[in-house]
C-alpha cells in the first residue's frame, strides 16, 4: 500500500518535473510548503483521534490562536521572538487542556459524535472571541529570518519555508517517538483500542485524553506561529486550516503521525499542481476528487491501520 502510493506520488513528481522543468519544480516546492502547513494541523487531528477516536474540529483554531497571540506578544508588545513563541504555546496549551477537562471529560461516556459537536461549538466560540480581541483584519508577523527569496534551479522559496519544513520534521519525529517509544505513549494508543487492558498498565482513558489534547493544542499553536509569516494571521484562518488538515489526516490514515505528514504533503503538492495544470478555479475540486478516489482505493488512508474502515 505504502509502496504503491509512494510510487504513484513519485511518478507524479517526475512527470511534472520532466514536462514543466523549473516551473514544475516551483510548483512542487510551493506545494511542499503549503503541504507542510496542512501536515502540522493534520498531526494534531491524529494525536487526538488515536487516543480518543474524537475528531477535533477546533484543531485549526489552536493554530489561529497561536498566530494571533504571537502577533500580540512579538509584534505588538515587543517580546523577543523565542519568548513570545513559548508564551503563546503555553497559553493555547492551557486552553486546550482546560477545554478537555471542562467539556470533553464530562462526556467520556457519551457517543463520539456528541464530543465532535462540542468541538464544533468550541471552534465557533474561539473564532468569535478571537475576532472580539483582535478584530477581523489579517495581521503581519515578521519572518524569523528575513524575506530574501532563496533560488535554486529556477525555483524560489522564502526562508520561512525552511522553518516550516524543519519544524514539521521535528514535530513528526517527536510525536512518533512519544507514541511508539515511551510507555505513556504506548499506553495511550492501547487505551483507545482497549481501555481495560490499558488501565492495567496504569493509563486510564481519562489521563490519555488529557495528554492527547495537551499535545494537540501545543502542536497546533506552534504550527500556527511558524506558518503565520507565510499565511498572515487572522481570526478566520482556523476554518480553512482545519478543513485541509482534516483532509490530510484522513488521506494519510487517521491516527498515524507519519501518515499525517505524508497526507499533508501530497494534498499540498496536488493542489499546486492542479492550480498549475487545470483552470485554477477548479484546483480544490481536483484535489478533493483525487482524495476521494484515493480513499476508495485505499480506504484506511495511505499509512493507516486497517480497522473499522470498510463496511
Amino acid at each position: 500500500m505504502i509502496y504503491g502510493s509512494a510510487t504513484v506520488f513519485t511518478l507524479l513528481l517526475v512527470v511534472t518535473l520532466s514536462i514543466k522543468g523549473s516551473t514544475g519544480l516551483q510548483w512542487i516546492v510551493s506545494g511542499l510548503t503549503v503541504g507542510s502547513i496542512y501536515a502540522l494541523v493534520a498531526m494534531g487531528f491524529s494525536v487526538i483521534y488515536s487516543s480518543t477516536r474524537v475528531i477535533n474540529f477546533a484543531q485549526g483554531e489552536f493554530s489561529m490562536l497561536g498566530g494571533m497571540l504571537m502577533y500580540t506578544f512579538a509584534s505588538k508588545a515587543g517580546v523577543p521572538v523565542p519568548l513570545a513563541f513559548i508564551l503563546s504555546v503555553i497559553i493555547v496549551t492551557l486552553l486546550g487542556a482546560g477545554f478537555e477537562r471542562l467539556a470533553v471529560h464530562p462526556l467520556r461516556y457519551s457517543s463520539v459524535i456528541t464530543v465532535i459537536i462540542v468541538t464544533i461549538g468550541f471552534s465557533i466560540f474561539l473564532r468569535a472571541v478571537a475576532k472580539w480581541i483582535w478584530g477581523s483584519d489579517p495581521v503581519k508577523i515578521a519572518s524569523f529570518s528575513g524575506d530574501k527569496p532563496i533560488r535554486f534551479l529556477g525555483a524560489a522559496l522564502v526562508p520561512q519555508s525552511f522553518w516550516v519544513f524543519g519544524f514539521t520534521a521535528l514535530a513528526v519525529l517527536l510525536v512518533f517517538l512519544f507514541f511508539n517509544r515511551t510507555i505513556v505513549g504506548k499506553g495511550m494508543t492501547a487505551a483507545a483500542a482497549n481501555p481495560d487492558a490499558a488501565s492495567l498498565v496504569g493509563i486510564s482513558t481519562s489521563t490519555s485524553s488529557l495528554i492527547a489534547w495537551t499535545i494537540a493544542a501545543a502542536l497546533g499553536a506552534a504550527a500556527g506561529i511558524i506558518i503565520a509569516p507565510i499565511k498572515f494571521a487572522a481570526y478566520s484562518v482556523g476554518t480553512m486550516l482545519g478543513l485541509k488538515g482534516f483532509a490530510a489526516a484522513i488521506l494519510g490514515g487517521l491516527g498515524s503521525a507519519p501518515g499525517a505528514v505524508v497526507g499533508g504533503l501530497i494534498l499540498g503538492v496536488l493542489e499546486t499542481i492542479a492550480a498549475g495544470v487545470f483552470p485554477s478555479g477548479y484546483k480544490d475540486a481536483v484535489a478533493f476528487l483525487i482524495l476521494i478516489l484515493v480513499l476508495l482505493a485505499w480506504p484506511q488512508g495511505l499509512l493507516g491501520r486497517r480497522q473499522d474502515v470498510m463496511a
Binding site: W27, G31, I230, S236, V237, T272, A275, S280
Partner: peptide, 20 residues
Amino acid sequence: REQYGSTDTDMTAQLTKIQQ
C-alpha cells in the same frame, strides 16, 4: 485569467502560469 481562493496561502502556481 486565473483565480485563487480567499483563504489560499500560496499563489505561485497561478503566477508561474502568468509568467509563461
